[in-house]
C-alpha cells in the first residue's frame, strides 16, 4: 500500500516536471524597452504630487517648494531626453499613450458627502439634496 503510494507519487512528480508541452510555455508579457524610463518618469511625477501636497498643507517654505520643483522638472526633462535618445538609437517611432482613463476624478465628487447619493459622473452639487460636491460636473 505504502509502496504503491510511493511509486505513484514518484512517477507523477517526475512526469509533471519533465513533460512540458509547447502549449504550456507561458506567454510572457512583452516589455517595452522604455519601461524603466517610464517608471522613472512616473516616480518623478509622484514626487511632484507629494511636493505639492506638502506645500499646500504648509510643511514647506515657499523657497524650498520652488527650488525642489525646479529640480524635479529638470530631472523630468532629463528623462524625456533619455527617452528620445533611446528612440533614436532603436530607430523606432513611438506614440505616447495617456494613462488609462481614471475612475471618476475622485470618488468624493460622484458621491454626495451629505446624503450619500451616487451619480454616474462627478457633480458640482448633489442632485438629491443640493449639497456642494466639489466635482466639475
Amino acid at each position: 500500500m505504502i509502496l504503491a503510494a510511493a511509486c505513484v507519487l514518484t512517477i507523477a512528480v517526475i512526469a509533471f516536471v519533465l513533460l512540458v508541452r509547447p502549449s504550456d510555455l507561458p506567454e510572457a508579457e512583452s516589455v517595452s524597452p522604455f519601461a524603466h524610463l517610464d517608471e522613472r518618469k512616473a516616480s518623478i511625477y509622484e514626487n511632484l504630487r507629494d511636493l505639492q501636497f506638502e506645500y499646500r498643507v504648509g510643511k514647506l517654505s515657499d523657497e524650498d517648494y520652488q527650488a525642489t520643483k525646479k529640480d524635479l522638472q529638470r530631472e523630468l526633462a532629463g528623462v524625456l531626453a533619455e527617452i528620445d535618445a533611446l528612440k533614436e538609437k532603436l530607430g523606432v517611432d513611438t506614440a505616447t499613450r495617456p494613462a488609462p482613463a481614471k475612475a471618476p476624478a475622485s470618488a468624493a465628487a460622484s458621491v454626495c458627502p451629505k446624503c450619500r447619493a451616487k451619480f454616474a459622473q462627478p457633480m458640482k452639487f448633489c442632485g438629491e439634496c443640493g449639497a456642494p460636491m466639489g466635482g466639475q460636473g
Binding site: K70, R74, A77, G78, L80, A81
Partner: peptide, 8 residues
C-alpha cells in the same frame, strides 16, 4: 531648465 531641454 537648461536651454537644450526647453523643448520638453
Amino acid at each position: 531648465i537648461p536651454a537644450g531641454d526647453s523643448r520638453y
